[in-house]
Each structure stands twice: as C-alpha cells, then as structure tokens.
Design a protein around this nucleic acid. Structure first.
Lengths: 334, 334
DNA sequence: CTGAAAGCGCTTACAG
DNA sequence: CTGAAAGCGCTTACAG
C-alpha cells in the first residue's frame, strides 16, 4: 500500500510537481483550463491526499495549536476546549489537548513536546510553577495565551474570570437575602492559585463593604478529600455560619454530599451558593443558586487572540489581562 | 529569532549531522565518550530542540492519533478522552480531539484532515453514515478503532457497552423492586444508532423474560427538546407507567427537569433508573439509581488496541467486537 | 567510531 | 502559463 504523492499526480497528469502544488493551493492565476482538468482527474483517479507534514516542514507552520488544561474532567475545561475547538475548526486549525493535572513537571513535558511538534501556538491554564519556561516563550515571542490564572509580571495575554466579583456577587446576594454569618470554602491554596485567592479576597471585601467583620474561622481551603471535615469543623463552631459560598464545582459537590449525609435542609439549616454553574443546578432540590462563568466565551476569545498572535495581526488585543463577567443565577438554595 | 537546527549543533560540536542524530536517538553503541559530551554541550549551549515534523516526514509516523467523538461536552466522551490521553501520554503519543456532532459531513472532513496530517491511527465514535470512507480505511489497513457504536459488517475493532444488558439490568432491578408498568425513554433513533436500539431491545427482552407484555406506548424516543413532551404524553396515558428507564444522561436530565416542574415525587409517583452514572447521582434527593458504564476502562482499552494496531503487534485482540459490562448502582430513586 | 549522500513530500522563488 | 532546482530538518543505509 504505497501512498500516492504529488509526483505520482504530476506524472499522471503530465505536468510538473510545481504545477500540481499550485493547483492544490488554489493559485489558479495563470493556469490553463485543460491543465486544471488534467490535474483534477489525476488526483481523483489516484485518490491523492496531500501530506500536511511535508507542507508543514516547508512552510514552518502546522495549523495546529496545543491546549494544556488542568484536567479535562472539570466542566470548565470541557467547555473551554469545546469552544476553542469550534473556533479553530472554523479557521482550519487543529487542537492537541493535554492534561497537566496541576503538575509542573507534566506541564513542562507537554510544553516541550508540543513545541517539538511545532505547534503554532499554545493556550494554557498554567500551573504557575514553570516561570523560566514561560519567560523563555515570551522572549521568543512564541504565541501564547493563558486562561483562568495569571502569572504575575509576565507579558502574556491572560483571560480570567473577575474572581473577586464572582465571590462578592455571591456574598452580596446572601446579604441581600438577610444573611450575615457567611462562610467560604475553596479548594486548596497551598500553591497560591490566583482564582482561589481572589475569590477569598472578593468575599472579604464584600463583607467589609457591608460592615460585617471577617471571621477567619469562616474561611477554609482544603484538598477535595478534606472538604467534608473542614465543613464539619466550621459547622461545629459555637456560632456556625448560616450561609456558605462554595468556590468551585468540586467544593460544591463535596458540600452537597456532606449536607445529604447529615440530613441538613437547604436553605433553612444552611444556604449555599456555588461558583460554577453546574449542569444539575436547576434540577436539584432545591435548585441551586450559582455564579456562572462564561467558559465558552472565554474559550472562544482565547482561541481568537491566539490565532491573531499567530498571524501577527495588528488587531491583537492591547490589554494583557482580560477579565470576564460572572453572572448570578438566583435559584432556591439561598 | 532563527530556530537552531541539527546542523547548528553539528557545527558547534564539530561532528556531522548523522552523529548528532544518533545521539538524539540514543544510539550510543559505537559513540566515543568525548563525542557524546561535545554534542551534549553543544545542545545545551544552543538550546537545541529537535523538530518532530521533520522526523515525522522521514519516518512516516507522527506519534499522534486522532480521536473523533460526538461531543466532548458529554461526560462519556470526556471520560473516554481522558483515559485515551493518559494511556497515550504513557506511550509518548499525542491526541488530537475533534467533535463531529453526529454530523457525517463534519466527520468526513475531520477524518480527511487528520489523515492528511498523517496521524498514525484513529479512535472514533462513528456516525455510521460514511460507510465508503470507513471501508476505504479498512482496505488500506489504516489503524482504526470504533467506540460506543458498531457499524454492521465492517471488520473494525469496536468497543461497546453491553447495551442490552444495561437496560435489562435496569428493568430486572425495577421488577425485583415490585414494578410492572415500566417505560423507557431514549434519545432519537432516527439514525438507528446502535446503543439506543440495543437498549430498547434489552428492555423488551427483560420484560418478556418475566412474563410482562411489551406496551408500545411505554416506549418513546425523541430529540432532547421533545423529551419533556414525550414524557408528558406517556404519563398522561390512562394507565401510565410507574417506573422509567432513562436511556442516557441527557434523557435523565430532561426527565428530572420535568419531574421538578410537575412536582412529582421520586420514587413514589415515579421510580427512575438512568443509564450513565451522572456525577450528581449520589448527591441528588433522592439519590439516583443508575447503570454505570466503564468509560475509563473503555477509553484505555481503545487506546491500547489502537497502539497495538499501529505497532503491528501480534498480540492484538482477535475479536472485533468487545462488550463491556454495565453495573447497577442501586440508590434511592427506585 | 563517524561522515557524505540520498531522500521523506512538499513549496517557492525564479527562469523562460 | 509551466517547469527545474533548491531547500525545509531530519534519518538511515552505507562506506571507510
């Protein structure tokens, strides 16, 4: 099974490879009608398919981008990827997806491999712990876009949710609904991931703005497995919070598991609002109040900026940091 | 910003390109110690990164596979992809992900483009409507694995859930719990997608096996937007079903939405069991009984078979169709 | 133990 | 309007 190449087509059609190449690339400007039809026939007859690897080598571009997320199993990542893929497909780009699992070693390995594969650009949810590597890419003006997390001081286009606003929306809604004892639970902040830190800040600011003191024992951050025990601690306080902001989908789900196990009633025993509009929010009993982030919009914009960077268009965004607006979905859990 | 190539390294180290290539590919057999160190230094000094595109062209393999799913937003696809990606990563392969959206035109475009990009193999959830194209790949012995859906009569390795068993598990569980009036709702079967048809068959067989007549008005298939009205029809029957098998996650969610809107009580007004173990199954009130399919296992196996096909290993599975076992997760909705 | 040469399948100035 | 030639950055027999 020998693959048919451009030479075979050229022979069959009695023209040179150059001419076939022109035809393939639709540069018909000076091409004779019969030449065209002869080539077309030869292509059809031989079932010729161009080899993009050869083309990429010559043109020094692959029309492929790499996307490195933390974990494709998170709905935010899935939506991001879908939006990126759709946008790229429209522009005849392909996307290679990788999961770095918040592991800087994996992240570096993927970045190196993708670049060795000559991807034209990279969209990454950065672990934040490969600074030298990021800087190197910046120095080489390699097309790069960060999503969800900033890396301080790096001139890289970065798309983020307005995280402070997300948690303040949640808190202000809770306050407006009459709550004052409001807690927040986030995923672990040992690596200082910006969204988590910012969500805590937004929470504090909203409380202060309404003259409510920040109570440190109402703020917990923990790995998924420890969420439930953190919750237990917080709810065992002599004066436990009456409402909780759950800073992402995973934390929300762990909390829901705990609430179910302990037979608590939402919102009477505990009001909750989650950040991330989980798929089942409106089906749940009671329906869950959430703060949604525009994951599709962010994915589309990330792809759009990256492709502009790749084509060195002048219309590229000026601003390095782009913040996206969260929206409150008021349902029945608050 | 000129990229440094193998020639540059060769010059710097005062050896030939061939020798650098040997070094890069770890063929040290006859290499002098000082040659090695000279090359190593040159590589480090110049920051040389090999160009895989050039290598791929020469070696006629890209260490990349394509994965075409219906829609990455479905949890089954996400889990499948994650498992494939993990397996491939372990074996130094990359994966390009595409969403065909059950559209044969998109499917064909993706397959053509991925092959033009010289992917070494393809894992696809086939739409079933590009028969000629599939046959062509089979003729060329192009490494190919199907997941989730068979295409009749094609000698292609195909991994599927034992769909009949999945729905009979659900039905038998319902019967054992004392139900007799059992309905089933599936996604649209206009395109005769095998899993949907098989799930209906399994449902019928389980009923017959237990001496219960099949009632055609207890069987509905519809597009997502029509699920709720189908449900309404079925539940408005003079003698409506008391229990429902929901044939996938989407149908389940539509049903849950309807149940919530109509203020029905699960399982008293209606018992339900869903196929696909949705993320929130155990959190829900009441916790949802489901039939789970081993998506990760299926993804891993698909990748494993594909890589065997690619390396033309003799250990490749003999059987073309591999069925995976569903498992019943008994919770509180039945 | 190492190098010169050919070639993978294209594209792209340039010549005619 | 079309073709000959060089070259993209590697790998791989083969020679020495």
């Amino acid at each position: 099974m020998k693959r048919v190449t451009m030479s075979d087509v050229a022979n069959e059609a009695n023209v040179s490879k150059s001419t076939v190449s022109q035809y393939i690339n639709k540069r018909y400007d000076y091409m004779g009608e019969d030449t065209k039809t002869r080539i077309e026939q030869a292509i059809r007859q031989l079932g010729y398919q161009p080899n993009y690897v050869a083309r990429s080598l010559k043109q020094k571009k692959t029309s492929t981008i790499g996307v490195i997320v933390a974990n494709i199993l998170h709905s935010f990542s899935t939506q991001l990827i879908r939006a990126i893929e759709d946008f790229c497909h429209e522009h005849d780009f392909h996307v290679i997806v990788c999961n770095a699992d918040d592991d800087p070693v994996k992240e570096k390995k993927y970045i190196d491999m993708l670049r060795a594969k000559q991807v034209d650009g990279l969209i990454v949810v950065p672990t934040g712990r490969n600074i030298t590597l990021y800087e190197q890419m910046v120095d080489e003006t390699f097309p790069l876009v960060f999503v969800d997390r900033v890396v301080e001081g790096l001139p890289v286009h970065t798309l983020m949710l307005d995280n402070e606003k997300a948690s303040s929306l949640a808190v202000e809604h809770l306050i407006a609904s009459g709550y004052e004892d409001i807690g927040i639970i986030t995923a672990s902040i040992v690596n200082h991931l910006p969204p988590r830190v910012e969500r805590i800040n937004g929470y504090k600011q909203a409380l202060l703005k309404h003259g409510i003191d920040v109570n440190q024992s109402y703020i917990k951050s923990a790995e998924p497995v420890y969420i439930q025990s953190s919750l237990k601690d917080m709810l065992s306080l002599s004066k436990p919070p009456k409402a909780l902001v759950l800073a992402n989908d995973l934390v929300l789900m762990e909390t829901l598991a705990y609430i179910k196990e302990e037979n608590l009633t939402i919102p009477d025993d505990l009001a909750i609002v989650g950040i991330d509009d989980v798929s089942f929010a409106s089906l749940f009993n009671p329906a869950l109040t959430t703060v949604a982030q525009p994951a599709f919009e962010m994915g589309k914009k990330a792809a759009c900026i990256l492709l502009q960077l790749i084509s060195q268009s002048d219309e590229t965004e000026q601003e390095y940091i782009l913040r996206f607006e969260p929206t409150l979905k008021h349902r029945q859990s608050t």
